[in-house]
């Protein structure tokens, strides 16, 4: 019986690479493609209304969550605190289990995914994976770039 050291070494290297790439992508803001921004599919105002949610006067964080997703809870805490502390910012959390159609239309593949919407409900950017308070503030700045920072640091 030969001990399979090369297999284990290859596996550990693969795990390290996947882990670093995965961690680097967590909560990273991806700007909505400008070329496609004109189409109505990127405007979620009607969907917010259908959910019974009020859009924020400045920005809305539309968060897709699943029941089997622990980082969704952490991200909801971060975005809930941000919307409570900033005027005109709304946080709307959608359970993909009960709103699968909306998740499919939004092209959401993993949870949490956060759509960052402007005052008109149009998608400006999105981020998947757990969001830190700093990333949430950066996402808000992407909607309202001229806004004064509140001075609080994450």
């Amino acid at each position: 019986m030969s001990v399979q050291w090369p297999s284990l070494v290859a596996l550990v290297v693969l795990t390290a690479v996947v882990g670093l790439v995965w961690r680097g992508r967590q909560g990273r803001l991806r700007r909505h493609d400008g070329a496609a921004a004109g189409d109505a599919s990127a405007v979620w105002a009607a969907d917010l209304a259908a959910l019974g949610a009020l859009p924020g006067a400045r920005a809305t964080f539309l968060q897709f969550s699943a029941p089997v997703c622990a980082p969704c809870r952490a991200t909801a805490r971060v975005l809930g605190a941000l919307s409570a502390g900033e005027p005109g910012v709304a946080h709307v959390e959608v359970d993909v289990e009960t709103h699968l159609d909306l998740a499919l239309r939004a092209g959401v593949l993993r949870t949490p995914t956060v759509l960052v919407l402007d005052a008109a409900g149009a998608e400006v950017a999105r981020a998947s994976g757990a969001m830190t308070p700093a990333q949430a503030r950066a996402a808000l700045a992407a909607v309202t770039p001229i806004d004064q920072p509140s001075g609080r640091n994450a």
Binding site: L51, G52, L54, P67, L79, G80, S83, H91, D95, H99
Partner: peptide, 10 residues
């Protein structure tokens, strides 16, 4: 306290 509109509970 946080302010979140939840369309469905967890």
């Amino acid at each position: 306290m946080t302010r979140t509109h939840r369309t469905a509970p967890h």
